[in-house]
């Protein structure tokens, strides 16, 4: 029994926390653009947090359920509805057989996540269910979902089964939802925290100040691979040639035109542009929720603070995990 894709929407793909361990072969990491939302969605249905889930971009996606299923919707608010009624988000939801889940348009943020209890039954490729669109591997047949595709699911574990039965008994009434405010920011004007990049000191004094004082706008060339930004141009103090070397999620690189690019989930494994900054890991999920024309203010923080922010958010995730377990098994 399954879920059928009635409409694929703009871009819907299966993602997990990414394909690690093969970057030395040039194989990109991929994975969710907003990892906190993906992890919470999985936790809410009793899955492992790195299980594959659907990443839904902006609008148009519509799914029909062919059996009763336990799901969770997190991430951006894309006006999700179940049979025309506003769908509950950031909590476990029981969707009835025959129901249609639809994402209409973005109210807040850019990407929603739908996790299914038991996980989506697709094979792992190189240790991950993430879709690597360009190479055509992973996810659902190596591609984005299309109309008429049919998704199958894995077996529910003890926690998922318990959550399922509770919701069934209470007719889907669940008084608890995750407050995501401390985890991610869905606003389209954001202050993003940045550590200096490996070539920060190679930029001229003006550019070093500009990066942290002037706003930058997301252009329409913003996708899962990277965000091209527009703003005051940044320039090197003296030209130099950088050999290709490792880059990572959130690397802010500056090509010769001076307009910074933030590397995102589908970035290449290596790059040769100077790196002026690096978005802190704790803020990556928030920028995964930006749409073209969004405004970013970069704010410099220390490496130590960046680690502290990451640990703080990890603590929140941990609390959610314990909370779901408690609700699922003891209530």
């Amino acid at each position: 029994m399954t879920v059928k894709v009635l409409n694929q929407g703009l871009l819907t793909s299966i993602q997990d926390l990414g394909r690690y361990g093969s970057q030395k072969y040039g194989v990109i990491v991929s994975g969710a653009m907003d990892k906190y939302s993906l992890r919470v969605a999985n936790l809410l249905v009793g899955n492992k947090e790195n299980e594959g889930a659907l990443e839904i971009t902006l609008l148009g996606t519509s799914l029909q359920f062919e059996k009763d299923m336990l799901i969770a919707i997190t991430g951006g608010d894309l006006l999700a509805s179940i049979d025309g009624e506003k769908a509950p988000t950031w909590r476990p939801v029981l969707v009835r057989k025959g129901s249609v889940l639809q994402f209409k348009s973005p109210l807040k943020g850019c990407r929603a996540y739908v996790a299914f209890a038991g996980g989506i039954a697709v094979p792992e490729v190189m240790g991950s269910k993430s879709t690597y669109l360009r190479a055509g591997i992973g996810g659902f047949k190596g591609r984005a979902l299309q109309k008429e595709d049919v998704l199958e699911f894995g077996e529910m574990n003890r926690l998922s089964t318990s959550l399922f039965h509770q919701l069934n008994k209470r007719n889907n009434d669940f008084t608890w939802a995750v407050n995501y405010d401390a985890l991610i920011n869905l606003q389209q004007t954001q202050t993003i925290r940045v550590i200096r990049g490996t070539e920060f000191d190679r930029f001229d004094e003006k550019s070093k100040r500009t990066l942290f004082n002037e706003p930058y706008t997301l252009t329409t060339q913003a996708d899962r691979m990277g965000y091209r930004m527009e703003g005051p141009p940044l320039s090197l103090a003296t030209e130099f040639e950088l050999l290709s070397e490792g880059v990572t999620h959130g690397t802010i690189q500056v090509p010769p035109n001076g307009q910074p690019i933030i590397l995102m989930a589908d970035r290449q494994t290596t790059g040769g542009y100077p790196k002026i900054g690096q978005v802190i890991t704790a803020d990556l999920p928030s920028i995964g929720q930006l749409q073209p024309t969004a405004n970013i203010h970069f704010k410099e923080i220390s490496h130590k603070e960046a680690e502290r922010e990451l640990l703080k958010k990890e603590q929140i995730i941990n609390e959610i995990k314990i909370g779901v377990r408690f609700k699922g098994l003891y209530l």
């Binding site: 030395k24 050999l243 290709s244 490792g246 890991t281 490496h303």
Partner: peptide, 30 residues
Amino acid sequence: ESVPAFNNITIHYDPVLVLNHLANNQPSLT
């Protein structure tokens, strides 16, 4: 994981796991 390049190597690590394995008597280390 690690990614070799021409004259350097990039090491990716999970800071949370690094600290989880840390002995309690070194809390000030990052």
